[in-house]
Write a protein that binds this DNA or RNA. Structure first.
Lengths: 132, 132
DNA sequence: CTGTATCCTAAGCGATACTG
DNA sequence: CAGTATCGCTTAGGATACAG
């Protein structure tokens, strides 16, 4: 498999080449992870498997529509497993799959970075907005 | 500063509490990193500082409008430094700041994850789409 | 060469009502 | 409880034309 990160090319050290072109699978994945809810759901499920209504409460401002949609996409990508218990009324539990747990490592690192640097970013913004 | 990751609460082990509420600074940062172009620009600048037109070539399908906008946001957040050389016609160089280089660590890890797992994801999708 | 301004479309998402 | 269907708004973002 090709390495994704086509950075400085040895043959042409002064010229960067295109990195990710249009139908790049890495782009696709990043796009989904970067959508409004996916990361939040993954982080919430990291704590423990949870039912639909628990997730609704854990992510206070998500709509049923978007929760369903996000969960379906995650299930489709093999990151989340969905289990239906035939109680009445039915209850459904969502849990991270091994793949889902594995993405949590780099994702958690990114969240940790955001948490420890958001003060610096806020300061940079004030500076920038003040200057111009 | 509070830890961002409010996962399993010790007091109420069977109940997850809300993770990130609406005006969470971590959400803001993730939203920008997760937009269509920011990560691509950061990765491209990781190779070397580059001029506007070089970036246009390096990211083949970005528009001038979005390149400008993404660079401005990154500059505003203190991740990218913009230097104007008073040549004629003017040339402008963009480079990562220390903050920009620091985010590249977790971001690079995430990209590496995406690269090494996109085959598994594609397989999961085929499975899912085939079953239902 | 490095932008800015305007217009316009497509996608994302929320609100609401309905269903097994 | 756990969804689905429909609607309509809002925003992201592409195309194009213009400017310093």
């Amino acid at each position: 498999m090709e390495p994704a990160l086509d950075t400085v090319s040895a043959e042409r050290p002064s010229q960067a080449r295109p990195v990710y072109t249009e139908n790049c699978p890495v782009r696709e994945i990043l796009d989904q992870i970067g959508d409004k809810w996916t990361t939040l759901i993954l982080l919430t499920l990291a704590a423990q498997p949870q039912r639909f209504s628990q997730l609704m409460r854990a992510v206070p401002d998500i709509s049923k529509r978007m929760l369903t949609q996000t969960l379906r996409n995650l299930e489709r990508d093999g990151m989340v497993e969905r289990t239906v218990f035939p109680t009445k009324p039915p209850s459904v539990e969502y849990a991270l799959s091994p793949l889902g747990r594995s993405v949590l490592v780099p994702l958690g690192a990114l969240v940790a970075w955001a948490d420890s640097h958001h003060a610096a970013i806020k300061a940079a913004r004030r500076e920038f907005d003040g200057v111009r």
